[in-house]
Design a protein around this nucleic acid. Structure first.
Lengths: 124, 124
DNA sequence: AAACCATATCACCATATAGTTATCCGGTCA
DNA sequence: TGACCGGATAACTATATGGTGATATGGTTT
């Protein structure tokens, strides 16, 4: 409803948003387009975690976890705090959970609708 | 705020959402992680369009546009209506615009913050 | 029917990226 | 100091995917 997305269109009446803007938006979506990263974010929803914690929770290798965290960090989605040997990661942009909620709701409605169709077939 | 995303966590206290659920969510994000598809959706925001219309608007090849539209169609994000030689596409799940708005807002805030940092450096 | 048109699909190539292994780096502790 | 530990990074492989040109499909027009 904020209209930032819509604004790009209304401005020039036809042109749409710039290539760079679309690329940025797509890039943000791309970061969330990976189950492992979603799992990491979900784990961080419970509060600050070390890389080791996240390795344990996800069952992934340390290198893989570290790489994904690095990507999320570069994008500013998570923040990092180093203490002794450990790196503590935490959510820096909680709006991503709103995104996930929206997607979940949308998918849930779609599945419910499909289920209803099947039920309709059943009782013919 | 709906809490669908959060629910997965609160349920078992630690396990998180299932792999399939995360895969579905990631898949939805993956669809939006492409500038060309975002451009198509943006064009469709103005109402129903034929493939030819979208080819003209985006400047992409017909095959490419058709392929992307097919993906969005399979995911239920757009709907299709065939009339004569033409296929008319339209938005079927408008919640994607809410997603785009959220991302735009988040990115905008991030850029504004960075800009502020630079300004701070400027006037030292 | 034949020519034509809009769209969908196929086969292909080029590129991007997730995962793995090995290694490096910095800090801690004996 | 040297052994050890957590984490980051590099090199590599395998796979997924976007773009393209060619072709198939289904409907229209003459």
């Amino acid at each position: 409803m904020s209209g930032v997305w819509v604004m790009g269109r209304s401005g020039s009446g036809e042109a749409g948003m710039s290539d760079e803007a679309l690329e940025m938006i797509a890039g943000r979506f791309r970061l969330l387009a990976e189950p492992m990263r979603l799992r990491l974010l979900q784990a961080l929803q419970g509060g600050e975690r070390t890389v080791g914690d996240l390795v344990e929770v996800t069952g992934a290798t340390q290198a893989n976890v570290s790489k994904h965290l690095g990507m999320l960090y570069d994008a500013g989605i998570v923040a990092r705090r180093k203490e002794g040997l450990n790196s503590y990661y935490r959510i820096a942009d909680s709006s991503i959970f709103d995104l996930c909620d929206l997607v979940c709701t949308s998918l849930g409605e779609k599945l419910a609708a499909q289920h209803e169709v099947m039920r309709g077939l059943g009782r013919k």
